[in-house]
Design a protein around this nucleic acid. Structure first.
Lengths: 159, 159
DNA sequence: TAAGATAGTTCCTTCGGGGAACTCACTGGC
DNA sequence: GCCAGTGAGTTCCCCGAAGGAACTATCTTA
């Protein structure tokens, strides 16, 4: 966890970073997404310190990204599952994958492929405008102040 | 900078995190994107430590995300500009904004609005499939091993 | 000549990550 | 009954990275 908290800034990037900006968090999210969702599985898969993993899972649970589910009672055993907003956050991972595939995969090509269930094809994500449906990229936009500009940090309900 | 480097993992998420996963990096990118692109401007705007800012800018330049441009010769003065891949990386910021606006903006609403130049409307990004053009989200995909799976880390040319 | 702007660098302190060992609760095998 | 094994963490120590303030260097303007 970085020393300076970002959650109080009037910036949705900073607030999002406050939730998953710490080292390891996006990789933990990725693992839960693909079904590696128990403590020891995640730990071994990533090679992360158990201490840091415990901290991150706690924070992701408090932030409403994952939830702990008990799959055995008598030896109490847990697994982690994505919430709705957690699954939406995985969209962010798809965009990271796209950029990494394009610029960092090099000669061997992408390590992982994604098949879109709707069409059955191997593909990747593209960004479109929610209004006109045309492609929309960072270079195609103007930035304007919104209603929440300079507002005090909202009290977000996690549930 | 986190202690464990992610760049060697066979995972485009980890590799992307290696470039902009450190605390502050996405916010620095955001500032350069909106035109806050000189050292002192960025430092004051973010309240970041000058030491950390210098380290991050150096790393982002080495990674080919930004480039240092001299805008005055006699007192040597520099500003930072996005490269092509840097601008593409800003697409990631748009998705972070979308998620943060949706889940963390609360009552005051989004702090910043984005106008799509092509249609002139305030909008946000949506993810579509590059093949069939239909919406594509994390819940709509299957994950398959790709050609670069388990490959040694590629030697990426930064230029 | 002094003040101001720009772009860093250096130094010190403190906090967070890494890693290994330890705990605790239960289970299944002999 | 006893012992090893599993799952899910917790505790401990060390070291490196973040914060923050002060310092440097160069040139311009008053």
């Amino acid at each position: 966890m970085q020393r300076t908290r970002f959650g109080d800034m009037a910036c949705s990037i900073a607030r999002t970073l406050d939730v998953i900006g710490e080292p390891w968090s996006p990789l933990i999210l990725r693992n839960v997404f693909v079904g590696i969702n128990r403590f020891d599985q995640i730990q071994q898969s990533l090679g992360i310190s158990r201490k840091v993993l415990a901290e991150r899972l706690k924070w992701l649970a408090e932030s409403g990204i994952v939830e702990q589910r008990r799959y055995s009672d008598h030896p109490p055993r847990f697994e982690y599952a994505l919430t709705g907003r957690g699954l939406e956050l995985c969209d962010l991972l798809l965009v990271m994958v796209r950029w990494g595939d394009r610029w960092l995969a090099g000669e061997p090509g992408p390590p992982v492929l994604y098949r879109h269930r709707a069409c059955g094809q191997i593909s990747h994500v593209e960004l479109h405008c929610s209004v006109c449906d045309q492609p929309m990229h960072a270079g195609d936009i103007d930035v304007l102040p919104g209603p929440g500009a300079e507002a005090p940090p909202p009290n977000v309900d996690v549930a």
